[in-house]
């Protein structure tokens, strides 16, 4: 199965998860996602998702000027974002369990 297709549905929650503990700017978030194993994630998809979560009120945003380069736009999670993340964690856990049962596997980490 093409993991990028699956990723589309869960990119929101993945992005929320990687900014949960520490604010991050666009490429920083991309790097964290890739480090977590989502290697095929596209930059533009992540930047777009950050912007959408911000518009939806799940993230805060602020600009940090830089002396030697262009400024960076940081995103941080807020209360609404945390609530969304908690909710989606539960949804995902249930969904993953359901799918694992359906596919007859005992581990959730193995890709088919």
């Amino acid at each position: 199965m093409d993991a990028t297709q699956l990723l589309k549905g869960v990119l929101d929650v993945a992005v929320l998860a990687v900014v949960e503990d520490e604010d991050g700017y666009g490429y920083d978030v991309v790097r964290r996602l890739r480090a977590a194993g989502l290697e095929d994630v596209g930059d533009a998809s992540v930047y777009g998702t950050l912007r959408r979560l911000y518009s939806a009120g799940a993230l805060t945003s602020y600009v940090v000027p830089s002396e030697e380069g262009p400024h960076r736009k940081y995103y941080g999670i807020n209360a609404q974002g945390r609530a969304t993340l908690e909710l989606q964690r539960k949804v995902w856990a249930e969904f993953a369990t359901t799918m694992s049962d359906l596919l007859g596997t005992s581990t959730t980490g193995e890709a088919a």
Binding site: Y25, G26, Y27, V30, D43, Y47, G48, G69, P70, K73
Partner: peptide, 17 residues
């Protein structure tokens, strides 16, 4: 502006990496 703010910084970093 919302979509592309900070784009240059992100691109520069991703290319440098």
């Amino acid at each position: 502006d919302d979509l592309t703010d900070g784009l240059e910084a992100d691109l520069a970093e991703s290319l440098a990496e």
